[in-house]
């Protein structure tokens, strides 16, 4: 596949994930949208490494960065969901609005 096609694929995955983040009511489902968006970043970084600068390992480092961000996002996300549910039986995004400005 060419670079443009891979980037289009990444854009499609990113926008699908963004749709999930914006529409899902459940906090856990919202995190699944975030995972999909970071998956798109991984794909774009790998494609950029292969098609733009394969001799340099920086593209691979971006993939490592995105994979780590995914793991951290999930760990902290689940901890926040657990804490929210414990304080007020909240598992929907609309209920968790204490910090609304």
């Amino acid at each position: 596949m060419t670079l443009s096609l891979l980037m289009l694929l990444a854009a499609a995955l990113f926008c699908t994930g963004l749709f999930g983040v914006l529409t899902q009511q459940s906090v856990v489902m919202l995190m699944m949208g975030l995972e999909l968006m970071i998956g798109a970043v991984i794909l774009a970084a790998a494609a950029a490494w292969r098609h733009l600068a394969p001799a340099n390992a920086d593209g691979q480092v971006v993939v490592i960065l995105a994979v780590t961000a995914m793991a951290l996002e999930m760990a902290v996300g689940f901890a926040v969901v657990t804490a929210l549910f414990r304080t007020g039986e909240k598992d929907l995004t609309d209920q968790a609005a204490e910090l609304r400005g």
């Binding site: 596949m1 891979l6 694929l9 995955l13 995972e35 999909l36 998956g39 798109a40 991984i42 794909l43 790998a46 494609a47 490494w49 292969r50 394969p54 691979q60 993939v63 490592i64 994979v67």
Partner: peptide, 16 residues
């Protein structure tokens, strides 16, 4: 996400 991993494998990044 496994399909994304498959694309990464096809791009030549076996370990990642």
């Amino acid at each position: 996400l496994l399909c994304v991993a498959g694309e990464v494998l096809l791009l030549g990044l076996q370990y990642l």
